[in-house]
Amino acid sequence: MTTGLLKPALYREAGSDADPAHPALLGGACGCGHVFFPMQNFGCERCGRTDLSPRALTGRGRLLASARVHLHAGKHRHAPFTVGSIALEDGPIVRTILVDDGVPFQAGDALTATLVDVHDADGNLRRDLRFQREA
């Protein structure tokens, strides 16, 4: 049995056409050329148009910055953990948790999306998206 995704509105297991090997991020694009993440239908942040189209973004990017979080107040998240700013190759910059392999991250590191097991707020096993150093 496949474990469900924690946030199926944000990513999917199947990759994009350009990168079938890694989970795709579910972004969007506007006719003005603005590519964004995640998909929304309220209106384009750059030009205000509402004819927005879903676009599966590749799960590949470059690390802009990382930080080891030592203190966190959330009940369901336990420090320490490492987060990063990732410039996706499709344009948007996303921030999320990194799979920390113990080797210090460097700006410019090539990263790829991956799904890892986590527990949701009710204790159920789910898979959530992380970025890890490219193998």
Partner: peptide, 25 residues
């Protein structure tokens, strides 16, 4: 209603910790 990959993992101090790392690089 728009989702967020990191949810509460990136508190304001971590937003600025990331900017600090970016500046340092």
């Amino acid at each position: 209603g728009i989702g967020n990959l990191a949810d509460d993992a990136i508190a304001p101090f971590t937003h600025f910790a990331l900017l600090g790392d970016q500046y340092a690089s």
